[in-house]
Write a protein that binds this DNA or RNA. Structure first.
Lengths: 351, 351
DNA sequence: CACGTTGTCGACAACGTTGTCATAAGCAAA
DNA sequence: TTTGCTTATGACAACGTTGTCGACAACGTG
């Protein structure tokens, strides 16, 4: 396992003064060259660039940012719930690309849905003077961000709106997506449609459930409250809830999963019960292998690309114009019809 | 979509001088309080903390870092290939948690496997004076990192070793994992085992292929070169290659996929050919829904947790002791036996 | 040639913080 | 009271950079 020793010759990084000395000019001239300021003779510029090359000089952009006019650090902070979740990682990837195109870097952190971790991350980000924040809010109150915003660090909320604060926001069309799912199942003949969701305190969960309720309410029978299970925070809980729901009499003939974590638990439960081919199922959030499942999983897919781009766009827009009116973008979702949503309610199941 | 206007009262962030004035002390005293330095009367400390609270002061840690003894910024840079890939996002998540526990933040970037993007990201990171780098190397030469290292920014390579440079490294046991996969298939009676892999220039791809070759070479028949397809960079390419491989005469009876992107393409191909239940298949890298596929996908799973923790551990260790010998950690992989690897070579297929 | 204008460049202050040092205040020992 | 030591505090330099300004040379114009 052990391989080799180092040589331990750590020299401090060269500064513009080192470069200046080497090039035989004043250090301010080096600064001018590095910032493409005018009024430097091309001969001088050459000398400076040569010295930069020789010394392997690299600007210390944090020192630079404390002095610059606008104090911008060309970095933004991103707080997601769990970076290991595919939705979050896709979002992050997109925001990163958007930022990098504008030579901004991204500091990322996962809140795990814990308010104090969210605040801790935001605090660290602000302490490092990020130029802006993109936050998937976890806590019940984001008013603490007002202070940051007033000091010039704008915030954009993604996936869920922040609470007790006005800010730019990008959300998915949660309720509509779930309504679509319900209607899709109804068309296949289903009336007894179960719903598994996260805690109601989570905005998206509440929205999605309300979409479910609204769609179900439009049907003749109305909803059976026993078919609704919320507060499911991880796959095992969803697994358990699914087992319980399908033990009911009469059992549901179809199932809607409120997010991808729940989907995993629920499909495992269907698998365990031997019901995967008999129970119709629609999941919120697409998953990498969803179309390879048998039956292929019908999903309500979020447009992560549009969400990420939208958030980044709002943030960079605000960086340029702090006084623009706040905007809220609602990104449409898309029902991807595969097989699991088309499983019909078998005759003996139908009322 | 438009919602509301802002009030546009952006005040500059308070500094320790503002706090000092408010508390009626010298600004150095504020600094002392904030850094928990000794020799401050508790009464004075109270006054300062009260002023901090009232003004909502937050330390400017970038200004602080340019002055501090060691110039540390308490941030590290992480370059992965594609953050949207589940392996990369899991890795990132783990490294982040490790870093945050030590109050370090993580700057992340995706190289997309492009050497110049890797260099660009590394450059930006170093320019922001990260304390260390964790890199999944993309290019064919990481010797440029020697300059950074000599200036005190240590590097740890993950997933693949850096080229033309000595540094701490964490890799998976690629060859061994694929060998295990081959043997598992052989036990099920297979001899005609196809292999789909990425470009040979990618270290992991080369390692995995060599594991395949070594295992196949141990068999009586030896390898049929036509069964090996490399250079597959995305799912569509893998899809195509799989179609071609299974059009051969005699067709392989089993398949090994060199990474998760290839797996997706290949399983789609098997699906298209109606061979998912007949062809044995083992994939490198576990996938979220792999156990819910039918047949459930047998995989060689990497221990992302150990890889991430190992990398972070090496990096933070090096931050404390620059002169320790370089280490290389090889993390074991694990063959997760599910169904697809146990599909037997049917009698008419067997030679 | 005198003059103003422009281009080039360096000296110096400043950003917000920490490091160094001097000094004042407090207090025990002489 | 004086001495000596410790504790508390502020004045100031310094980090590496950019902003401001003035010095000076080169230039064009009358």
């Amino acid at each position: 396992m052990v391989q080799d020793g180092t040589e331990d010759r750590v020299t401090r990084a060269p500064t513009i003064k080192d470069v200046a000395e080497r090039a035989g000019v004043g250090f301010k001239t080096v600064s001018r060259v590095l910032n493409d300021e005018p009024n430097v003779r091309s001969g001088t510029r050459e000398k400076v660039l040569a010295a930069v090359e020789e010394l392997g000089y690299r600007r210390n952009s944090i020192a630079s940012s404390i002095r610059r006019r606008n104090q911008r650090t060309a970095s933004i902070g991103l707080v997601v719930e769990d970076l290991a979740n595919p939705f979050a990682s896709t979002l992050t990837r997109i925001i990163q690309d958007y930022a990098l195109e504008r030579s901004h870097l991204v500091l990322v952190g996962s809140s795990d849905g814990e308010p104090e971790r969210e605040r801790e991350l935001v605090g660290e980000f602000c302490s490092r003077r990020v130029d802006g924040l993109i936050v998937v809010p976890a806590g019940a109150d984001q008013s603490y961000l007002e202070a940051e915003r007033d000091r010039g660090i704008p915030v954009v909320f993604v996936d869920r709106p922040g609470k007790h604060i006005k800010a730019d926001t990008v959300v998915s069309e949660n309720a509509g997506g779930i309504s679509d799912a319900v209607h899709h199942l109804v068309e296949a003949g289903h009336r007894r449609i179960a719903y598994l969701g996260d805690r109601q305190a989570v905005y998206t969960a509440a929205q999605r459930l309300s979409g479910y309720r609204a769609a179900i309410a439009g049907l003749d029978g109305g909803a059976d409250r026993r078919y609704i299970r919320t507060g499911l925070r991880d796959s095992p809980q969803a697994y358990q809830a699914a087992l319980e729901v399908f033990a009911l009499e009469p059992a549901p003939t179809a199932l809607i999963c409120g997010n991808n974590i729940i989907t995993i638990g629920a499909v495992h439960a269907l698998q365990h019960l031997g019901l995967r081919d008999r129970i119709a199922c629609i999941a919120f959030d697409d998953l990498e292998l969803a179309d390879l499942l048998r039956p292929a999983l019908t999903v309500v897919a979020q447009d992560s690309e549009a969400i990420g781009t939208g958030a980044a766009h709002l943030l960079f827009g605000r960086l340029e114009d702090q006084s623009a009116p706040y905007r809220r973008i609602t990104v449409p979702v898309r029902l991807i019809e595969r097989e699991s949503g088309k499983i019909p309610a078998s005759d003996h199941q139908r009322r």
